[in-house]
Computed example of a mutant assay.
Amino acid sequence: MIFPQVVTIAGSDSGGGAGIQADIKTFQERRVFGMSAITAITAQNTLGVRAIHPVPVEILASQLEALNDDFSITAVKTGMLVDAATIDMVVSKLGSFSWGALIVDPVMIAKGGEPLVSEDAILTIREQLLPLASIVTPNIPEAEALAEMSIETPEQVEIAAKRIQKLGVPTVIIKGGHSRDRVDSRDYVLDGNTTFWLDAKRVETTQTHGTGCTFSACITAEIAKGASTEYAIRTAKSFITSAISQPLGIGHGHGPTNHWAHRKEREE
């Protein structure tokens, strides 16, 4: 049996809760073989990001080429892409590879509020990366940057999703974790011409580091296994809800989610 093979192109989180570490943990839990191409090394923990060291573009390119030369990759996701030069190169490589669906998690801001990409990178994401993508998964602040508008109401969420879709990506998921709704966490999905909301009860917790990475990684894994877009999204919503609602209590700040929480639920 050949397991589906997937790649994450993202930064390394020394604290283990986000970035490629969260992605690989999620891939393993979803029974796909995960690989990585590291865009940056960060010094961080649950209290915040202390330093970011971008990986030289030529080293990142070599990582991607090495993976393409040896593996049968059927889905890929991007996370923190640092700057415009990095995005340019990733776009060039992905355009020449046959890696299946591209899921873009447009990582721009850390949980503590620190910027994770340069300003010119946002424009490059909008104009070059999104037209290659199958799915994009912004939170509300990221959706505001991509759609170039303020988002405060459900109606504005829907308008923003349409604006982002017009950039060339068929499926837009605007995550509701940053919304003002204190009862539910509502994600809005625009999948082609189909729209729906995904609701889950909001969990009051600080243990949410890496939620976006984990959510998009789960979608990537399910797509690689041949799932429909809607099934992959609903599975990822269930997976991340479990991971948030059964926290590990690690660290003294925004702690990581529990990537194996879904196992306990199956056993029960």
Rank of each mutant, 00 (worst) to 15 (best):
122 I>S: 07
248 L>W: 12
36 S>N: 03
86 T>Q: 13
262 H>D: 07
228 S>L: 10
119 E>T: 10
177 G>E: 08
226 G>L: 13
138 P>T: 04
92 S>R: 14
232 A>S: 07
129 L>R: 11
130 L>K: 13
155 E>P: 03
253 G>P: 03
146 L>R: 09
164 I>M: 05
223 I>Y: 04
80 M>C: 10
230 E>F: 03
2 I>V: 12
100 G>A: 06
18 A>C: 08
255 G>D: 09
110 A>E: 03
174 I>H: 07
68 N>E: 12
56 P>A: 07
235 T>N: 15
200 A>L: 02
175 K>R: 14
152 E>Q: 12
75 A>E: 01
87 I>W: 15
98 S>N: 14
236 A>P: 03
199 D>V: 01
38 I>Y: 08
115 P>F: 07
108 M>L: 12
133 A>F: 06
77 K>G: 00
194 T>N: 14
198 L>M: 06
81 L>D: 05
90 V>Y: 10
249 G>K: 11
51 A>G: 01
138 P>Y: 14
6 V>M: 04
144 E>F: 02
183 V>I: 09
139 N>M: 11
83 D>H: 13
28 Q>G: 10
234 R>D: 04
141 P>C: 14
13 D>Q: 11
157 V>E: 02
219 I>W: 11
200 A>E: 09
235 T>I: 12
132 L>A: 05
264 K>V: 09
64 L>M: 15
126 R>E: 09
237 K>T: 06
256 P>C: 11
135 I>T: 05
62 S>C: 04
57 V>Q: 15
249 G>F: 04
11 G>C: 10
137 T>L: 05
47 L>W: 00
146 L>Q: 12
54 P>E: 06
193 N>P: 01
224 A>M: 09
98 S>Y: 02
145 A>W: 07
188 Y>R: 05
2 I>C: 09
97 F>T: 00
58 E>H: 13
253 G>Q: 02
98 S>G: 03
252 H>R: 10
